[in-house]
Design a binder for these strands. Sequence first.
DNA 1: TGCGAAACTCTAACCGTTAGGGTTACCGTC
DNA 2: GACGGTAACCCTAACGGTTAGAGTTTCGCA
Lengths: 191, 191
Amino acid sequence: MIEPPGRRERKKAATRQKIADTALDLFLERGYDVVGIRDVAAEADVAVTTVFAHFASKEALVFERDQDFEQRLTRAVTDRPPQEPLIPALQREVQALVRHCTAEGSAPVRRMIEGSPALREYEESMSLRLAQALAGVLAADPRLSRSATACRATARFVIDAYALACWADDPEATVDEVFRMIDAAWQATAP
Amino acid sequence: MIEPPGRRERKKAATRQKIADTALDLFLERGYDVVGIRDVAAEADVAVTTVFAHFASKEALVFERDQDFEQRLTRAVTDRPPQEPLIPALQREVQALVRHCTAEGSAPVRRMIEGSPALREYEESMSLRLAQALAGVLAADPRLSRSATACRATARFVIDAYALACWADDPEATVDEVFRMIDAAWQATAP
DNA sequence: TGCGAAACTCTAACCGTTAGGGTTACCGTC
DNA sequence: GACGGTAACCCTAACGGTTAGAGTTTCGCA
């Protein structure tokens, strides 16, 4: 099924990777806001337009690592075992995502995000998209049958847990504590 | 105590007001993204730099109306009667804020916000600031004595209720429903 | 009256982003 | 193996938000 990609696709992927790597290196080395897109393009030896052919914005260069969060979260809901309750399944997945974000090597990147309002805003807007996707699968799950409002609220609460934990001193404990609240909130929506 | 402001301050306020009014008029009339800052400045008969002396960004021109949300929310917590429980007090205030945002005259503005990703992102980032301020007063309230995490989570949940209701078909019912969830979540944090 | 400062002005740029249009390199087909 | 289509890439030039710098007007106050 999986054909080995042709030269064309390999070159494209290589270009994308090189841009992302170069950008992150430059950002970490000199600072996010003193490095311009033109610098990144020059260092990666591509045209500025090529950068924007691969990435929608300067901020997107920083968050390439967590592209698949949306899929992971929605699958945690749709692919959970038949009798598995919703909240613990979500909690496990959020723990995994948070671990990924607060891993050893991610510390400099997180410090960089913390220091740039533009990056923090971008992360928030990603979270919003995440919450909307999650609300969608919650509303569609026949095992749940909750109101659209309950689904949307729960989705946002879950993303809140993720966002809070990413910046907390003790991420794992934060997820647990917030999910205790989410569980209570979810029970309160039982039809 | 309150001195009548001198000519200087009155002129400054008038300039600010004129810029905001002109901007909103132009935005609603021609569309947010086809109207540039230079257009606004020209129509208001001021320099572009003056616009930015009064407003931090183009988006801020649209949201001048709800500057005091932060103060209103925090006061709803700190100024509530001695024995008044937290959640209903917050719920009332959120209802008021939502009513303000979904009032008759606000419809065109909300449609404009809906149509512009930049404006929606800006609104989200304002919400984040709101949640942080709220978390602060919750943590400081001696009547509550909950963990910092519980305060932060609750604050975000409350802002979620506000954000969801602003875009819901039935804002008032949405606030009520989400606050039923928030109440359950908050009870679950009792020490 | 005159001084200091705040409000405002103009000019000229910086930076992210995009449109337009051209070149190269790969892929599938005859 | 030549060949046409097209995806990836390039360059130039611009647009629009935003800011620095430096000058001018207007106000408040001594």
